[in-house]
Design a protein around this nucleic acid. Structure first.
Lengths: 164, 164
DNA sequence: TATTGTTATACTCTATAACTATA
DNA sequence: TATAGTTATAGAGTATAACAATA
């Protein structure tokens, strides 16, 4: 799996820039998470560009589609981002005609979000783009590595001590 | 390890917001990488705030310290970010008195970067802050999970198809 | 008082385009 | 022509503070 029957070759970022002394910077987990995140986000942004949506906007469309009438507060809780941050995505999506905001009749503070026909079309195409993108970036991983990665990331996320 | 001797409980993001239909959004790897990245970055930013540096600025200081006289181009290659992006961090670090830029005598196009005494102090304190931060966020992981995470992230990074 | 949404503002990280100076 | 650095500008994603409307 890892090559010939010698000691497993350790592949590190050192091999990418051999002339630099990394001084153990590559033992910082956050660095690698950040690098891989940038890789995923920037590639996906390019794929989604023709559809005039960003990765986070698609995630919002995705959940609104599956939960018609959902409130911004619910999205804020799911993504663990602040309400004004959610609102910014929602505002852009409404401006671009992918989403509408219908005030709730039960609680007039809250709005309910729905996709437009155009929003549904964009979501369908975006899901296809995401599927191709994820397939492309994870072909090197075995099925077991993929599921381990999901499991470990989830464990990190769920075990994080509360803010403050 | 995972609880009583029943089928391993699957812990997902669904359990965080039970009332939402996720419609398989949680099968998108990029979402989890992004969430964990935000977790790491935002926590570290708060820890570094008293030192007046950001996570990326510390990474720059770290490499300049280990490679006195390094060029911005080398940093650009290591971090896989564009030269103007590196320059922005460098400019801020110089402005804050943590870095100096001494033009090379061999190639007057290039500058060489060095830490100031204050930069060295901030780096030392930042490394301590990062060590505590990483320890705090990864305590839930076993040693094997940690090394698997490093290995899989590195594999993703190194196997990524070239841009375009 | 508490919740929902909104507006204004700002910060971090990233990019592209276009420029200067040097090799 | 190619490389190193710089400047200007922009965009994605995030936050906090303060406010209005509603419950």
């Amino acid at each position: 799996m890892e090559g010939p029957s010698v000691a497993t070759a350790e592949i590190t970022r050192q091999s990418v820039v051999p002339e630099l002394d990394l001084d153990d910077l590559d033992s910082v987990l956050g660095l690698h998470i950040g690098t891989v995140n940038t890789l995923f986000v920037s590639r996906l942004e390019k794929r989604l560009d023709p559809l005039s949506v960003t990765p986070k906007q698609v995630a919002i469309l995705w959940l609104v589609n599956a939960n018609p009438g959902v409130k911004q507060t619910d999205l804020s809780r799911f993504f663990q981002i602040e309400r004004p941050t959610v609102h910014q995505f929602v505002r852009q999506l409404i401006k671009n005609g992918f989403l509408i905001n219908e005030p709730s009749k039960l609680d007039r503070r809250a709005g309910g979000l729905w996709l437009t026909d155009e929003g549904r079309e964009v979501l369908t195409k975006s899901r296809q783009a995401i599927a191709e993108h994820e397939e492309q970036l994870t072909t090197a991983l075995t099925a077991r590595e993929k599921s381990e990665l999901f499991r470990i990331l989830m464990k990190l996320y769920l075990s994080a001590p509360a803010k403050d």
